[in-house]
Amino acid sequence: MRADPQTLQAHAAFLRTLPPLPISPRAEAYLRSGHEVALEHRGQAIFARRFDAGPRKALLVHGVNGRASQWVKLASRLQAAGITPVLFDAPGHGFTGGEQTDTDLSAEVIQAVVERVAGVDIAIAHSFGNAWLYRALAKGLRVERLVTLCGPARARYIVDQHVQRCRLSPEQAQAFCGLLEARHGTDFWQAYSPAQIARQLETAALIVHDRADSIIQYAQALELRAAFAQAELLSTERLGHFDLLKDDQVIAAILAFVDGAPASDVARPDAAAPG
């Protein structure tokens, strides 16, 4: 099926990123204080920083249209706990710059950053950045502990959301999906779905999701948890899609989990319910 101009525009928009989020002077000062991880990928300089604190390292992956500065509070807490955080801005984001990215490109950058810092023990991702991280895991990245914040379970969910935003007709949606399959392969729906990838992982995982998340529905977290051999779900209330990144109780649960506590010990139903 041939794609009409509106469908082609929707496909271009699927790859295009928004202008970088504003960054506070304090957050920028923190990021600039880290050790530069010198990296160039596909001819583009990647902004990446390492904050030395101990031998264990944690990679923090922001979401689509996010940036590394969103992790400053959690990164500083990891440092205080003796864990070295590694932060980066994906192509099309933050200080890395550019106007577009896709799952494969960002997954390649994740792998390149991890290789440059000689491996990481922990990976933490937010929102659609989980699609990038899980793709890297499918490509061979290995970690001991995995934390998914507000992530999707299925590629179909990601695509359906975009189709709705672009107001494509059923025929246009079918053509749009054909463009994705032409770019990524006909196995796109399985190969790029975090839940499908999770079924092949032996990594201990903590999934954190707000019940009222308006960006990625809570049902996605339930589906993702069911796909793991060993994972627990920490459900939050009234934190939405972004506030849990800086919520003290959520951060405490993440720190306990990456320190070795069983996921079931930190994923109590009331663990992150505001008082």
Rank of each mutant, 00 (worst) to 15 (best):
11 H>A: 07
16 R>H: 13
22 P>A: 13
28 E>V: 05
29 A>K: 10
33 S>M: 11
33 S>I: 12
33 S>T: 13
34 G>L: 10
45 A>M: 11
48 A>S: 09
61 V>E: 03
63 G>Y: 01
68 A>G: 05
69 S>C: 06
69 S>W: 02
73 K>A: 08
78 L>K: 03
79 Q>T: 11
81 A>F: 07
87 L>W: 04
89 D>Q: 09
96 T>K: 03
99 E>S: 14
100 Q>P: 02
100 Q>M: 12
102 D>N: 15
102 D>A: 10
105 L>R: 04
105 L>G: 00
107 A>M: 12
112 A>N: 07
115 E>W: 08
116 R>D: 06
121 D>R: 04
132 W>C: 04
140 G>S: 13
143 V>A: 12
146 L>E: 06
147 V>M: 10
149 L>F: 14
150 C>H: 08
164 Q>C: 03
164 Q>H: 07
165 R>C: 00
166 C>M: 06
166 C>Q: 03
170 P>Y: 11
177 C>G: 14
178 G>S: 06
179 L>D: 00
189 W>Q: 07
193 S>P: 06
196 Q>N: 11
201 L>W: 03
204 A>H: 02
223 E>G: 02
225 R>M: 09
230 Q>Y: 13
239 L>Y: 01
241 H>Y: 13
243 D>H: 14
249 Q>K: 13
255 L>M: 12
256 A>T: 08
256 A>I: 05
256 A>Y: 03
259 D>V: 06
259 D>T: 15
259 D>A: 15
267 A>E: 00
267 A>Q: 02
271 A>G: 03
